[in-house]
Design a protein around this nucleic acid. Structure first.
Lengths: 118, 118
DNA sequence: ACGAACGGTAAGCTACGACTTACCAAAGCC
DNA sequence: GGCTTTGGTAAGTCGTAGCTTACCGTTCGT
């Protein structure tokens, strides 16, 4: 269902392989073959993931001979993180105080007498 | 305690409907029917999502007559957010400095960078 | 120029997850 | 007690994301 929002960061990082690639690229730039050798998936699979990541602006590629070195795009990464943070901001808005309060008690049994609807 | 091996936080929030439910529940506790009425999916679908969320410790349910009111579990929410933050911490380790540096240059979301690579 | 290395793309298969309808259980209301 | 409301569960369908193999272009080495 695309009724909610356009494809967001969750779809991109929702895939474990993609997350692994990002983490791997966070260490240092790597060629496609290197990534494929590290990950438990084939090289074409890596290529496809890289395409998604590149399309999302998360990575940059750079030709180096017959190889093609990929690296994280800082701007894209921070932008995506920003986007995900927005979700938390919206979700925890007027709610985090309850979170902290609840964490102190460690018990979710706040005695309530009002259970009526709105 | 959560002895479950909860699926990755990304998998849980990877679904748009689930995110919508979480956001909806962040506003205020709601019954299943209310959620189903708000969302573009059927009531059973909501139930199934709620099961996933509850299994992940993200929501608590409370019987209220024939209805069942669901609400966010603050501890679970913060735990999950913590989990996701761990990813960023690991990813941006030794990398965030570059990110911040780049953020200054590309605040307005620089479209592309052409590198005249030889 | 020929062969090897490297990588992207196409086509196809498979698996899983999300959604639906149908049915059943539990609790209120008259 | 019987009907209504509300939810959870079962069973089944369907779409799609991810992976693989096969193939082709490009670039380097000799």
């Amino acid at each position: 269902m695309g009724t909610y929002q356009r494809p967001d960061g969750w779809e991109i990082l929702g895939d474990p392989s993609r997350r692994a690639i990002v983490e791997c690229l966070a260490e240092r730039p790597r060629a496609v073959g290197e990534l494929a050798d590290t990950l438990p998936i084939s090289r074409p699979a890596v290529s496809q993931h890289l395409k998604v990541l590149k399309d999302a602006g998360l990575v940059d590629d750079e030709a180096a001979g017959t190889r093609r070195v990929y690296r994280l795009n800082p701007a894209g990464v921070s932008a995506l993180r920003d986007q995900l943070d927005m979700f938390w901001k919206r979700t925890l808005q007027g709610f985090e105080e309850i979170v902290e309060d609840d964490e102190r008690n460690a018990v979710t049994e706040a005695p309530e007498q009002d259970e009526g609807k709105s």
